[in-house]
Design a protein around this nucleic acid. Sequence first.
DNA 1: ATGGTGGAACATCCA
Length: 257
Amino acid sequence: MKIASWNVNSLNVRLPHLQQWLQAFAPDIVGLQETKLEDPRFPDDALAALGYRSVFCGQKTYNGVAILARGRAIGEVQYGIPGFEDEQQRVIAATVDGVRIVNLYVVNGQDVGTDKYAYKLRWLAAVRDWLADELQRHPKMVVMGDFNIAPDDRDVHDPAVWNETHILTSTAERTALKALLDLGLHDAFRLHSDDAGVFSWWDYRQAAFRRDLGLRIDLTLVSDALLSTAAASGIDREPRTWERPSDHAPAWVQIGG
DNA sequence: ATGGTGGAACATCCA
């Protein structure tokens, strides 16, 4: 089962790319972030035509998340973090084939020390507390999404710039990510690769993709119970090369056969 | 130190 996460940066703009990529890559389960669509405008019919069911929660202009599953039922859908008041649509979870799928669009945080940064850390703490419970109920879990945190120096093009005081790599952010991993979750990419310089996001500015000035901030995490079945993991750079792309590339993990 | 590019929506906010 191929499970993938992709920040599409507007599903309205990126639907043709999503359709093309679903057909080429044929993932079984997909988590989307930054759909930027209110629910009545979600293109569930167009995705159903490709064999994908979808569940989603969105809003205009910002945020928005969805889970797609090919030829499988999507059950036990959870919208948002239980008990955490949040106007921003950043979380959707569901059960597919007995696996709990948690799809996160983690707060960006703007800059270290800002209100948005404080919100990011509060939000990550709430996710941690929720997932601690969720893992008791659903030991087989994949947590995926745009984490807006690069796990370590191998995951940034320039560690001198992307250092312990910089947004996306700051000490508190990495500590918050470690708190998630300490629940019994594993960065699938690192199960199979020690490589530095494999990225999932490149800024639109300064020709960052052409120069490969990126970060790996899109992650798929697998729980202890799935660890032995995580056969492969990677990032599909292909859609980032297409015309008018998202600034993110899909991250994926293969579970079982 | 600043701004650069792209999306949404239409002056800026967000990333």
